[in-house]
């Protein structure tokens, strides 16, 4: 009995220590390890929140086989930056903190964060955000991509995003006629 009790206590202590850790370790598909604030990860990612709550976080690095190291580094970077930019309670009266709109415009640091990414890095990050259930990061990255499309002609969009036009001339003409109501600017 004594032994069991001792063991139980030790386990208890270990569990408490684990729960007390304020970071979690994530492992990319290519085996690199990244530390991220547990609070931010749980707040920003529904998937990580579920894993943390369900105790399926591995101390030696939780495997995220679908996410490459570059994208995971960006995810972790985003979480850590987000953790540092929580508006203070004193801002409660400012108009910014009260905005409960479905989508809030990206903040200055979020803009900078996505602006520095190459197209490939941005697309990888969108997919990682989608996979991890990070609604805000998904919105910010998708919003960025939409800004890269906004105001551009179809030819320009194809060029920016490397899209191959596989329509015939006749098909294109037909679509344009069918959707004339949306091409009112021309």
């Amino acid at each position: 009995m004594e032994v069991d009790k001792g063991k139980g206590e030790a386990e208890e202590t270990r569990k408490v220590a684990e729960a007390d850790r304020d970071t979690v370790t994530l492992k990319s598909s290519d085996g690199k390890l990244f530390e991220v604030s547990k609070e931010a990860a749980a707040r920003l990612s529904t998937v990580l929140a579920g894993m943390i709550a369900g105790g399926s976080i591995d101390d030696n690095g939780t495997d995220l086989k679908q996410i490459g190291s570059e994208a995971l580094e960006n995810v972790v970077d985003y979480c850590n930056k987000h953790a540092n930019s929580i508006p203070s309670a004193a801002l409660i009266s400012s108009s910014i903190s009260f905005n409960t709109a479905p989508f809030k415009e990206p903040e200055e640091w979020e803009r900078k964060f996505v602006d520095r990414l190459s197209h490939d890095a941005l697309f990888d990050l969108v997919e990682a955000a989608n996979f991890l259930g990070m609604e805000r990061l998904l919105d910010v990255t998708c919003h960025k991509i939409s800004e890269m499309m906004k105001g551009k002609s179809p030819d320009q969009i194809r060029e920016v995003f490397n899209i191959k036009n596989d329509y015939t001339k006749e098909e294109l003409e037909e679509i344009r006629q069918e959707l004339a109501w949306a091409f009112y600017d021309d």
Binding site: M149, P154, D185
Partner: peptide
């Protein structure tokens, strides 16, 4: 589809012509 949701709707419709 999520990305198109951030565009003004006429521009989103116009992406029809990009490719099939």
């Amino acid at each position: 589809e999520h990305i198109l949701g951030f565009l003004p709707s006429p521009e989103a419709v116009q992406t029809s012509v990009l490719a099939r």
